[in-house]
Design a binder for these strands. Structure first.
Lengths: 223, 223
DNA sequence: TGAAGACTTGACCAAACGGTCAAGATGATA
DNA sequence: TATCATCTTGACCGTTTGGTCAAGTCTTCA
């Protein structure tokens, strides 16, 4: 009863750190599959190998787990866009951005699906984050794209529309994985399919902006 | 007790027809907003102005309502792709297809979100439909695209990837409406924004395929 | 070693939910 | 108007679910 945890970010014991991580991991798996309402604390407990009561020792409620999961993946999910560098040339940067986004869809499809689920339902729990952090990030990167356009490095195109279409195409591979697998038998786990997806998206975006990519494949992996 | 309804498609009374429609309509609104698990029969009842018991008079279970909703929108949702005509030229046809898909996302965003929700969760209830009807439709239309490519009317591109990217971009405006509204303050309800979206998507797709659109705007509305 | 906290759990509770049922209201038909 | 099938509803039931609690186990450290 004395061991109040609440939302203290400081002084997590080894056990707390480990168990909170496990819960967030299991929560991500369940929430991304079944949505918020379709997920029960009990199912997360089973997924993590812990008891339901113990989950509620570390998080005060189901909603608290959900929010922790969301917060945990938000930064990593937005990282690629943050990396868009106005000093480099747009073809390289856009191709790299698409590469990163495809990579995220391949390696963290659950994160993509969780966001999709959340936004689909009106983003009731991350509205504030979107209105503040995401909005300012998108505004900032829109300005980068406008900078390229003003510099004559890029054809005129609405920056926000450009960002939306990149999001749409890349995340589609994670969000609609089931459909894609049914129709093609493949997912982004298949290296050939993944390369084909990346090539297609890159081609559409770059050409749509009047750009050309020098090197056909094999972009660097570094952020 | 004698008035068995079950799944008899024949001989629906006027009242039955009206009430089943209302339930499907209300069900679409609720299921698309909150997902299957997040929707309660009671909420659908309130939305339709009927009692919970009465809903269960017309449909044997919540799952039955859900399936009726799904079935109801499936045909109309796939209609645009069915219209892809191999005899006409690809630029016109692809532009028309994108136009239709944007139109659907604008006018039936709930249908788009319902499908997105369903697929996101592994398509547990429409897997068969996708494996059979959708797969054969996509196969057929992929062949149309390949036909264009063989005839030299279209650059070489993977037909399935092309279809996926069109789906991704157009449906994104419905599925992520909340996000788009937060970031731009607009939705497809805004005529200017809708035109901008359609122009952007059309431009990316056509250029990506090495095509040009003669007429900039104002495509016909007819199917 | 032993005490004080941190950690874990099973039993339990109230609310919400899907679904049943019997009884009443309404509409069609003669 | 009388009759019967259709339609509608409130009361009710069993299950599931989020969350509480008291009691027990394990860690840590003097």
């Amino acid at each position: 009863m004395t061991g109040r945890i609440g939302h203290a970010p400081k002084g997590l014991s080894r056990i707390q750190e480990r168990n909170r991580s496990r819960i967030i991991e299991g929560g991500l798996a369940e929430f991304s599959r079944f949505g918020y309402s379709g997920t029960t604390i009990e199912k997360i407990a089973v997924a993590t190998g812990m008891s339901k009561s113990n989950l509620l020792y570390y998080f005060s409620s189901k909603a608290a787990i959900y929010e922790a999961v969301l917060a945990h993946i938000l930064d990593v999910w937005l990282a690629p866009l943050r990396g868009l560098d106005p000093e480099k040339d747009p073809a390289t940067e856009l191709a790299a951005y698409i590469h990163q986004k495809i990579k995220m869809s391949a390696e963290l499809p659950e994160a993509s699906r969780l966001f999709a689920n959340e936004v689909l339902q009106g983003a009731p729990r991350i509205q504030r984050v979107m209105e503040e952090d995401l909005k300012s990030l998108v505004d900032e990167k829109s300005e980068v794209i406008r900078h390229w356009i003003r510099a004559g490095k890029l054809e005129a195109i609405d920056p926000v529309q450009l960002i939306f279409t990149i999001w749409a195409m890349t995340q589609h591979y994670a969000d609609f994985q089931t459909q894609i697998q049914i129709l093609t038998g493949k997912t982004l786990d298949d290296p050939d399919f993944r390369q084909e997806a990346e090539t297609t998206v890159t081609r559409l975006i770059l050409r749509g902006c009047g750009l050309e990519l020098k090197d056909g494949t094999g972009q660097g992996d570094a952020l």
